[in-house]
């Protein structure tokens, strides 16, 4: 439990850092670090496939995409972030954490839930026999993403 808590706190810290840091590259990297923490948390929750996906795809691929974008858009002028953020963000965030903790403590065991039976089978069984329509959706969303990128980076004959 202590390790899990430490990992969760690390996840939140790095995520907050990713938002707060001024330098884009640093904030992309701390986002990747947060993903790494999340991946380990998933492993510890007996979800190895989700953990692998989180680490390889989110911490890996998406970070690469972010860094690529940062490199490609560097020519633009520096964006002046408002200074207010530096104190407004922590203030609101800490206030929310306190409210959040109180609400969760108040809710403890209050939300009614059905007792669930233990699941049987393996990840593969559940994915293939339980949620096959998700796979159709995944194919569709990948197609959408591919066509979107193709459309946005097409050359030449565009109207003005």
């Amino acid at each position: 439990m202590i390790v899990q808590t430490a990992l969760l706190i690390g996840l939140v810290l790095f995520s907050v850092l990713a938002i707060l840091l001024r330098d884009l590259l640093k904030s992309a990297i701390s986002l990747a670090a947060a993903s790494l923490f999340l991946g380990i948390i998933f492993f510890r929750m007996n979800a190895p496939y989700a953990g692998v996906f989180e680490i390889s795809v989110v911490a890996g691929l998406i970070t690469v995409l972010f860094i690529l974008t940062i490199a490609l858009t560097k020519a633009g002028d520096e964006v002046r972030e408002s200074r207010v953020v530096n104190w407004v963000f922590p203030l609101f965030f800490i206030a929310f954490i306190i409210i959040d903790a109180l609400v969760m403590k108040g809710l403890l065991r209050k939300i009614p839930a059905l007792a669930s039976g233990a699941e049987t089978g393996t990840f593969g069984d559940v994915l293939w026999k339980g949620r096959t329509f998700d796979l159709v959706g995944q194919i569709a969303v990948i197609l959408a993403g591919v066509f979107a990128v193709l459309a946005l980076f097409r050359k030449g004959d565009k109207h003005d």
């Binding site: 569709a140 197609l143 959408a144 066509f147 979107a148 193709l150 459309a151 097409r154 030449g156 004959d157 565009k158 109207h159």
Partner: peptide, 12 residues
């Protein structure tokens, strides 16, 4: 331009 791509997105 890029009509095939347009229709592909439309159908998705």
């Amino acid at each position: 331009g890029a009509k095939a791509n347009y229709y592909a997105l439309f159908l998705v």
